[in-house]
Simulated scan of single mutants.
Amino acid sequence: MLATVGDRTLAEDLVAEAFARAWGVVEQGQPPPAPQAWVVRTAYNTHVSWWRCGSSSTSTPRPRPACWTSRRAP
């Protein structure tokens, strides 16, 4: 993720979010067939969603845009 986003703090946040989502999926009894790939792809998709919702720069991490947090499942 660090190579993709270029900012260590943002990369760490994205990976933490991906692991949190993975944990939720595993708790529901639906483990992904390729967990490592699933976590990486989830982190990447989270970054894309964050970027689409209004982040103009990844060099200055900002709070998540409201449009991103409002679409998340509880």
Rank of each mutant, 00 (worst) to 15 (best):
L2E: 04
L2C: 04
L2T: 09
L2P: 08
T4G: 02
V5F: 14
V5C: 11
V5H: 09
G6P: 07
D7M: 11
R8T: 07
R8P: 08
R8A: 13
T9W: 07
T9D: 06
E12A: 15
E12R: 12
E12F: 08
D13L: 11
D13Q: 13
L14H: 02
L14M: 12
V15M: 12
V15Q: 08
A16V: 15
A16Y: 08
E17K: 10
E17L: 14
E17R: 13
A18W: 00
A18M: 06
A18E: 03
F19G: 05
F19P: 03
F19W: 15
F19N: 11
A20T: 07
R21Y: 02
R21W: 01
R21I: 12
R21V: 13
A22Y: 01
A22R: 01
A22V: 04
A22M: 03
W23K: 00
W23M: 00
W23I: 01
W23G: 00
W23P: 00
G24R: 05
G24I: 04
G24V: 07
G24W: 00
V25Y: 00
V25R: 04
V25L: 11
V26P: 04
V26F: 02
E27K: 10
Q28L: 13
G29V: 08
G29R: 06
Q30K: 14
Q30W: 03
Q30E: 12
Q30H: 10
P31D: 06
P32K: 07
P33H: 03
P33V: 12
A34E: 11
P35H: 00
P35F: 00
Q36W: 01
Q36D: 05
A37P: 12
A37V: 14
W38A: 01
W38H: 03
W38N: 01
V39S: 07
V39D: 03
V39L: 15
R41V: 15
T42Y: 04
T42W: 05
T42L: 10
T42G: 09
A43C: 11
A43K: 13
A43R: 13
Y44P: 09
N45S: 14
N45P: 05
N45I: 12
T46W: 01
H47M: 13
H47Y: 13
V48H: 07
V48P: 02
V48T: 09
V48M: 14
S49R: 13
S49H: 03
W50H: 06
W50A: 07
W51M: 14
W51H: 09
W51Y: 11
C53G: 04
S55Q: 12
S55N: 10
S57C: 06
S57N: 10
T58C: 12
T58A: 15
S59Y: 02
T60A: 10
P61L: 05
P61G: 05
P61T: 14
R62M: 11
R62C: 09
R62K: 13
R62E: 11
P63W: 05
P63K: 09
R64A: 15
R64V: 09
P65W: 06
